[in-house]
Write a protein that binds this DNA or RNA. Structure first.
Length: 261
DNA sequence: ATTGTGGCCTGCCCGC
DNA sequence: TGCGGGCAGGCCACAA
């Protein structure tokens, strides 16, 4: 599914959509437009203008628009793809169909030059909005500082995994990255966040950033050390013992009972 | 405020 | 071979 690394690849792809005058907007799925956006309002915001730049906060892709028009915000959910001029940002998505069906195109911006930018999303869990409230997201997980992470974990009694995945506090860590990071850091995902000592926090900070960087280098969220073994009956690739599986923070979680404490 | 739960979406996979 | 029920997880509404 698209986590932070995939959205960063989408952002790089979206760079090729910058500075191209927009001719029309197709928004055939009203359900896909969120927070008050309508086909009419999005069309009015974009038509005759251009994207002037791309940004990303966590899993939110932001396309800034020329003039005084509102920024376009794209959420990819877990099955959304970005396609520009027929080129997909990611070839293979876990937990999503890789088939190509234009019936799954939920949103399209067509340029005067004949090209287009599309969101293809079989499960319709993504979303398009105008002028997204960027303050509802915490600092980006790729650049979060050690001090910020310590404050995010703070005095919370919630499981550390739930805290890491709280987008309002730390933007960009999804379920797979959370499991990989906790596995690398040797931290039990169920532990109350406030029980972590400074050494644990230091490990988590190191591995949050390093894991995301690894994924960016190696091509996506499916390249982790734990993830190939994150299946029913999987063994810890470090200790060889059976991985535990349970719901933590409402999400399916795998961890090693031996070295994650 | 904080934390937990349930539901949404729909393609896919497993077992019958 | 077809079919039904789980399952996947990001996000949000809602409850305690």
């Amino acid at each position: 599914m698209p986590e932070l690394p995939e959205v960063e690849f989408y952002r790089l792809l979206a760079e090729s959509a910058v500075d191209r005058p927009i001719k029309t907007v197709d928004a055939p799925d009203a359900w896909y437009l969120k927070r008050g956006a309508t086909a009419r309002s999005v069309r009015a915001a974009l038509r005759g203008r251009s994207f002037v730049g791309t940004r990303r906060i966590g899993k939110l892709l932001l396309l800034d628009v020329s003039g005084d028009a509102p920024t376009l915000g794209l959420h990819f959910g877990m099955s959304g793809r970005l396609i520009v001029d027929g080129v997909a940002g990611i070839d293979d998505l876990r937990y999503a169909s890789n088939r190509e069906l234009t019936a799954w195109d939920r949103f399209r911006v067509r340029f005067e030059d004949g090209g287009d930018l599309r969101m293809r999303d079989p499960r319709r869990l993504g979303a398009v909005e105008l002028d997204p409230d960027e303050s509802r997201l915490g600092p980006d997980a790729l650049t979060v500082s050690a001090g910020e992470l310590a404050r995010i974990l703070g005095t919370s009694t919630a499981p550390v995994k739930a805290r890491l995945m709280d987008q309002a506090r730390l933007a960009g860590v999804g379920n797979l990255i959370a499991d990989e990071v906790l596995w690398r850091a040797g931290v039990d995902p169920r532990r109350p966040a406030r029980d972590l000592d400074s050494a644990d926090v230091k490990q988590l900070h190191k591995h949050v950033r390093r894991t995301i960087k690894d994924f960016l280098t190696h091509g996506g969220s499916h390249t982790g050390d734990l993830l190939p073994h994150r299946v029913t009956g999987g063994l810890c690739p470090k200790d060889g013992v059976a991985l535990q599986r349970a719901q933590v923070g409402g999400r399916t979680t795998y961890w090693c009972p031996t070295h994650q404490t």
